[in-house]
Design a protein around this nucleic acid. Structure first.
Lengths: 200, 200
DNA sequence: GTATAGGTACACCCAACAGTTTACCTGCAT
DNA sequence: ATGCAGGTAAACTGTTGGGTGTACCTATAC
C-alpha cells in the first residue's frame, strides 16, 4: 500500500473532511463527488458505502455544523453580576461564531443552500433555536429587576439583529471577516443601545 | 401562426419574464434554458440571439431587480417635519420591499446566488449603496439638531439591521411574508429604539 | 417580386456527473 | 489456509443541459 494504514473511522472522517471543503467551495449542486473522493483519497465505492447519496453526505455535514453553532451559543444568567457585563457576554457568544473563518465559510454556503432549497435542511434547521438561550437570560434579568423588558423574545431578537447587522450579514455579502477587536467595539455599541432601551 | 403577432420588444420581454420565473423557482444552476424558452414561447435560437449565454440573461435580470430595489429606497430629509415621523418614513421605504412577494422571492434567489458565487453579481452589487440615502437623512437631521448622532453611517446601519432582523431575514429563512400591519408595528419598535439612542 | 430581418423547429455535439457493476487486492481472525 | 470485511481501480450507464448548425417560414421594405 502506498498510504499510511487507516482504520475505517479515519476513512469516513477523511470523506467528511473532503466533502466539507468541496461543498464550501462550490455549494451543493456544483460540488462533484469525484472531486470529493479524490480529495479524501477514497474510492467511489467506499464513499457510497458510508453515505448512500450526495444528499445524505451533505445533510450529515450540515447537522454537524449546526451543532457547532449551537454549542457556541450557550449562555445563562448569573444573578448579582453586572447586567451590562452579561449582555457583553451574550455578544461574545455570537462573536465566537462571527470571527471564525471556518464557521463563517460554512455558514455562507449553508445559507445559500437554505435559500435555494429549504427542504434540504428543514429538519436540521428546526432542531436549533438560536435565540432561546438569549431570551431566557433576558427574561431572568428582567425578573431580577436588572432590566425592564416587556417582551424578552423581541429584545433578544433585536440584540442579535444589531450584532448580525454589524458582523454577520456584511461578511455574507462579501465584506472581510471582522477581527476580535472590531467585534468588541461592535458589541459595545449594541449593548449601549440595549441598555438605553431596556436598562432598569 | 397560432399566436398573436408580437414585435421583437415583446419577445425579448417574454424571454425575460420566463427567465425570471424559472430562476426564481430553481436558482441559477438548476434553471433550465429549455424550460425558460418553453415558458416564454420562444425558440432556442431566438433566446440566444438576444442573450449570448445563460449567465448574461441572468445578469440582465438581476440588474433590473437591483434597480427596483434602489428606486424604493429613496428618502430625503424634510426640515421642520417631526423627526420621529421621518424615521417612520425611512422604515416604510424598507417595508415597501419587505412586504412585496415578487421582490422578496427574487431577493431570496438573488441572495442565494450572491453567496454561492459573488462574481456573478459583483459589478451589479457595487452599483447600489442601500444605506447612503438613509445615512444622508440622519446626517441632515443631526445637523438640524433634531437628532444627536456622532456616526450617521453606523446609525443608519443599526436602523436597517433592526428592520431586516424583524422582517427581511426571517423571510429569507422560511418565515411567511410579513403583512403591512405587522410591518408598521415593527417600524414603531425600531424607531423607538433609535429615538432612545439618538433622540436630541 | 425579392431580399432581409426575425422567428420556428429540431436534430446534434459535447461535457459533466451521480451512481453502479465488476474484478481484484489485503490484512486480520479463526 | 481460508474466508470475510473493507478497500481500490476503472469502465460503464443514463441523463441532463448549455449551446450550435441547418433548414425552413413569413412578414414588411424597397
Amino acid at each position: 500500500m502506498n498510504e499510511v494504514v487507516e482504520n475505517s473511522v479515519d476513512k469516513r472522517e477523511a470523506i467528511l473532511q473532503g466533502a466539507f471543503d468541496e461543498f464550501c467551495e462550490n455549494g451543493f449542486l456544483a460540488a462533484s463527488m469525484d472531486r470529493i473522493l479524490q480529495t479524501a483519497g477514497a474510492s467511489k465505492r467506499t464513499v457510497y458505502r458510508y453515505f448512500e447519496s450526495k444528499e445524505v453526505l451533505f445533510q450529515t455535514l450540515m447537522l454537524r455544523q449546526w451543532r457547532v453553532i449551537a454549542d457556541n451559543l450557550k449562555v445563562s444568567y448569573r444573578p448579582g453580576v453586572d447586567v451590562r457585563e452579561q449582555l457583553v457576554e451574550m455578544g461574545r457568544a455570537q462573536a465566537r461564531l462571527y470571527t471564525s473563518p471556518e464557521i463563517m465559510t460554512a455558514n455562507k454556503m449553508l445559507m445559500s443552500e437554505i435559500l435555494r432549497d429549504p427542504e434540504l435542511v428543514r429538519e436540521i434547521q428546526n432542531q436549533v433555536d438560536y435565540t432561546a438561550s438569549f431570551e431566557q437570560l433576558l427574561k431572568e434579568a428582567a425578573a431580577d429587576g436588572a432590566l425592564t423588558i416587556a417582551n424578552p423574545r423581541q429584545a433578544a431578537e433585536e440584540f442579535i439583529s444589531l450584532l448580525k447587522g454589524k458582523a454577520f450579514w456584511p461578511f455574507m455579502l462579501g465584506a472581510p471577516l471582522v477581527s476580535s477587536e472590531e467585534m468588541d467595539a461592535m458589541i459595545d455599541q449594541s449593548v449601549d443601545m440595549m441598555m438605553n432601551q431596556y436598562g432598569a
